[in-house]
Design a protein around this nucleic acid. Structure first.
Lengths: 347, 347
DNA sequence: TCCAAAACTTATCGCGCGTAAACTTTTTGT
DNA sequence: ACAAAAAGTTTACGCGCGATAAGTTTTGGA
């Protein structure tokens, strides 16, 4: 006898039928699926009992059609092929599930028009809320602004000033101060390696943090700006890093990269030019990054960097959105988490 | 005058109203949205004209409720934080959009129970089809089998024998032959570094390919199996790589890793043990991987590997699914693409 | 024990669109 | 120019569930 899980094996096609076999009225069943806590414990038990015997699931489309507010939540990241965002998305996704929501993942793949299209599609999903890490400078601000007016949206990672309910990210200024301070204390003061036209607005704050920290330490800053656009940061770091090294653009032996992905490319450039990176004897260059990218631990040498607080950012932005959804009237808020120095052997 | 895009600015709330303002009957409008090609060109023009003036979008939920077949397509990968899968997913996503479908992305994040839940949720989405890269050994075969019986599903990357409409992946045996042949011709024959209990069934074929190739070349094989489970391959490669190196498990100076992520960790182990990797003078170890992981280009030294044909796998699996959806009665088919040797400086 | 509040039931409507049938108009090919 | 084919129109129904109102039962506190 392999004809199914249990006795009651006739297919339940709708809530009406499920109400019949479970001995509860349809409106109560409906209430249960909307929020299991909203029905009496004994009723809940009876429903869940029937649920095990008959495995019925309400029709998603019919369910959301008339609901003013769905349980859908959109998670949008600018570039999923960056494990940093994949990891962030994973954590947020889990937060949503734990809170009883249905998250859906989107990636703009670095393309502004795709970001616009995603928001467009998201609209028709009637989401209860959206957690959005925008592309940054490339984003179409007016589109996002309109979207934020229609849908409760919390921005994370990359800020678009005054858009959305809140912004949750890292304290880029503190990041730069922390790593600059460390580098200065342990060797030559760092030069700064960044993109000339960075995708992410955090980059500007990181540069400013670098400048401030250097001034505070009493050193002259030295910045090299890499040419190139797009999201292929490693390649830009490698190509432009090589160019900078070959043309002697760095005043000291220490290079602080604006982010880990640039640093990863920069390390490749160093290798290809035969420069030994690290702090041990025989090493010619020190390299540091920012973010604690998932792969930073596995470069050669492992990359010294400032760790973003993935968990805090994920949880905080999700929590903020849930609060707003549940009616908490809150003012626009910016929440920045501090980074932590991760000392490895590259600097 | 900043009150909107055009004259006709009253909000269109449903297809009825849009039919009115566009001067076309509702059933025809419905047909148009189902498939724009299905209406006369002149009618299409009138609809699209009205579409620009009034920006109406049909209600997604009402739309899919009664449709026998939606335009939804599910894309499921085992581990999104692996850029390899992120890249694969991105390409497939684009294929779906280009073909007029609505793809939705899911990641099992390495967790079998999540994979089951995803398939469960996917069901209620009434997808026209699903492109599934299963977890592999950790997958619940019976669950996936049931799912495949209900929903047109094409498996990719990781095969579950005879499940789904088709399997599209890489020719793991050819991969191993290619790289073993190269390594033998250019230096000492390779030892094989793999996981004892690999997540991905391709791993077994890669090992077999290694054994066959070694026998064919007339060399004695040497295999080290790393302990550890899960999807944190880099860490396993680093930890177990170090253990293997320290206890002298390798008969030659050349190590072929079962995949690039293991190799990336292995390179870190080599660095931490002070072993120089590469082919130049002074190098003590050669290391090679398989997959051409997006980061393989940026390790130090850059990793010699066998490149998977991302584009071919994506396009082919998507194309196969579309064919099946459109009614082509096809037999189960396995399509394997060959890899290409990517020579970099690690071996 | 009794009564009000809370929870459930019954009945009914509507959401926005897919779909089908029967009829009318436009487009083809010769 | 004419008939057949193709496309569009009218009308009508149903999908599965959310939501509400009015009536009935259960619960819990004094």
């Amino acid at each position: 006898m392999q004809t199914g899980e249990e006795m009651g094996d006739q297919k339940i096609k709708n809530m009406e039928e499920f109400a019949a076999v479970s001995g509860i009225s349809r409106p109560t069943i409906s209430k249960y699926f909307n929020n299991p806590e909203s029905v009496r414990a004994s009723t809940r038990a009876r429903i869940e009992d029937a649920l095990e015997r008959y495995d019925y699931r309400p029709n998603m489309f019919a369910m959301n059609q008339n609901r003013k507010l769905t349980k859908n939540i959109g998670i949008v990241v600018p570039y999923m092929a960056d494990p940093f965002f994949a990891e962030l998305a994973r954590t947020i996704e889990q937060c949503c599930i734990d809170a009883g929501y249905r998250p859906t993942l989107f990636s703009a793949h670095g393309q502004p028009d795709l970001e616009v299209e995603i928001l467009d599609n998201l609209r028709s999903m009637k989401p209860a809320g959206v957690l959005l890490a925008p592309l940054g400078r490339a984003s179409d601000r007016s589109v996002i602004e309109k979207f934020c007016n229609d849908v409760p949206t919390v921005l994370f990672d990359s800020v678009l000033q005054d858009l959305g309910l809140a912004f949750v990210g890292s304290d880029s200024t503190q990041f730069a101060r922390l790593i600059v301070d460390y580098l200065c204390r342990t060797g030559e003061p760092p030069c700064f390696f960044e993109m000339k036209t960075p995708a992410n607005p955090n980059a500007n704050r990181r540069k400013q943090g670098y400048l401030d920290a250097m001034e505070h330490m009493g050193f002259a800053p030295c910045i090299f700006q890499a040419e190139g656009t797009g999201w292929d940061f490693e390649e830009i770091g490698r190509r432009e890093g090589a160019r900078a090294l070959q043309t002697g653009q760095f005043a000291t032996n220490t290079i602080l990269c604006s982010n880990d992905r640039l640093a990863i490319g920069f390390l490749t450039a160093c290798y290809e030019l035969g420069l030994r990176v690290g702090v041990g004897e025989g090493c010619q260059v020190r390299v540091a990054g920012q973010d604690d990218h998932p792969f930073a631990r596995y470069t050669s040498p492992p990359l010294t960097t400032i760790a973003q607080d993935y968990n805090a950012i994920s949880r905080s932005s999700a929590a903020y959105l849930f609060n707003a959804i549940n009616g908490a009237e809150t003012l626009y808020e910016t929440q920045l988490f501090e980074g932590q120095l991760v000392m490895r052997s590259s600097a």
